[in-house]
């Protein structure tokens, strides 16, 4: 254990430092959801009528509805960003330094994942603070109860990023991830519109959205923000995290030889 703690601390600190060095990344991470919240949501407020469904106990504005989805969006982009930085690390060689440390590979990857999640959660709280300043408020206790949900959702999306990074051969291929992972995952979810609304237009789309792990991560955050637990999304998110993590560990297995591609 004495070997593990310094390594965990070092990996997370390095990721945090790297994030601090990239102020543009922080700004972009914040501006993106705020544009959705303050521009997109304002425009759609009139167009979309929302009925009272759990966890909401009263009519809510559209801005309020999409706050959990935008938290999910932050974590999704952050997960993919950390995946991008892993591919970059591999191309630049610093991944070799990490992978040749005398520690189990799963632990090294898990440490990276925790670091990425920590940064994602930090971004979420910054976003929630700005939203609060614009009078989009949540139950005070919700800010606290959302923490475990944000961490779990962050771990799930970070693990997805890790798994993807082990299959992306080159940095240039990353644009494909944007088109084929981020956008479908985000739009085919309950982030922007409730699933019952989706069912009104297409049963098939509704079913796809319902199977999307991102939907469950968003619902988990939504209920947690209202001091409530959603058992099914919780289970689904935990399962997806485990599957993505197992995929990442398999992808980085030395016998499979990920790094040898850059030989």
């Amino acid at each position: 254990m004495t070997r593990y703690l310094p390594a965990f601390r070092a990996i997370t600190t390095r990721e945090a430092l790297r994030f601090l060095h990239q102020r543009e990344r922080f700004l972009a991470a914040l501006v993106r959801p705020l544009v959705w919240l303050l521009v997109f949501a304002a425009g759609f407020r009139a167009a979309l009528g929302l009925s009272i469904t759990p966890p909401y106990q009263t009519y809510i504005t559209y801005e309020t509805y999409i706050v959990p989805g935008l938290c999910g969006m932050i974590l999704l982009f952050n997960g993919m960003q950390s995946s991008l930085s892993l591919v970059y690390d591999r191309e630049m060689g610093s991944m070799r330094l990490l992978l040749t440390a005398p520690l189990p590979r799963w632990f090294l990857l898990f440490s990276k994942l925790c670091a990425a999640t920590f940064i994602g959660v930090l971004q979420c709280y910054t976003f929630l603070a700005v939203a609060w300043a614009f009078d989009i408020t949540l139950p005070p206790l919700g800010y606290l109860t959302a923490l475990p949900a944000l961490i779990l959702a962050g771990l799930m999306l970070g693990a997805l990023g890790l798994a993807l990074s082990s299959f992306i051969k080159q940095l240039e291929n990353f644009a494909g991830v944007m088109n084929f992972v981020i956008f479908p995952m985000f739009f085919l979810s309950s982030a922007l519109y409730p699933l019952w609304k989706m069912a009104e237009s297409s049963e098939l789309l509704h079913d796809i959205c319902a199977a999307n792990p991102f939907t469950h991560a968003v619902e988990l955050i939504r209920f947690a923000l209202y001091v409530d637990i959603a058992p099914w999304p919780l289970l689904w998110t935990v399962l997806a995290t485990l599957v993505f993590m197992a995929l990442a560990i398999w992808g980085y297995d030395p016998a499979r030889g990920l790094v040898r591609r850059k030989g």
Binding site: A10, L17, H21, M92, G93, S94
Partner: peptide, 26 residues
Amino acid sequence: FQQQTLDLDLTVRQNLTYFAALHGLS
């Protein structure tokens, strides 16, 4: 390694401290 593996935004000491920690030294 043949490739350069220092984190260019960190100082030499920070780079070495990071590596030391990966080997359980702090």
